[in-house]
């Protein structure tokens, strides 16, 4: 059971990554596409947290802990926060472009917006 639980987060991360990619490839709507990109990004959160997790360890706040208490890796959590900030910017930018595309092109379907070919 513990084996299954320790593998599960990695399986979830892989599943989310591939599902997000599949969603982007088949997307017929730009908003849906941005959401799929965010799903793909969630895979990296799960992966980072799984890597930093230590069974039986506490949160990495040492205010009232004796030194040497096992704690989960705080670095991956910092990385994840940075990741959220960076990618929120990208998602916002893409959504703004989707709004513009709908205004100018009258559609959110990437296939109907494709003017640049070959």
């Amino acid at each position: 059971m513990t084996d299954l639980l320790s593998v599960l987060p990695y399986a979830v991360a892989g599943w989310l990554l591939l599902w997000g990619l599949y969603g982007i490839v088949t997307s017929k709507n730009l908003v849906h596409l941005v959401i799929c990109l965010v799903v793909m990004q969630s895979a990296t959160y799960v992966l980072l947290l799984a890597i930093g997790y230590k069974s039986g360890a506490v949160a990495p706040v040492y205010a009232d802990m004796p030194p040497g208490t096992p704690a989960v890796d705080p670095l991956v959590q910092a990385l994840m926060l940075t990741d959220i900030v960076v990618e929120a910017t990208v998602a916002a930018l893409l959504l703004a472009l989707a709004v513009q595309a709908h205004e100018r092109g009258g559609s959110l379907d990437p296939a109907r917006l494709a003017r640049l070919k070959g």
């Binding site: 982007i24 730009l30 596409l33 990109l37 990208v90 930018l93 893409l94 472009l97 989707a98 513009q100 595309a101 100018r104 092109g105 990437p110 917006l113 494709a114 003017r115 640049l116």
Partner: peptide
């Protein structure tokens, strides 16, 4: 303002 540049930017960003 134009559809072509929007498509290019969306492809690039995605």
């Amino acid at each position: 303002r134009e559809v072509g540049p929007l498509q290019g930017a969306i492809n690039f960003a995605t």
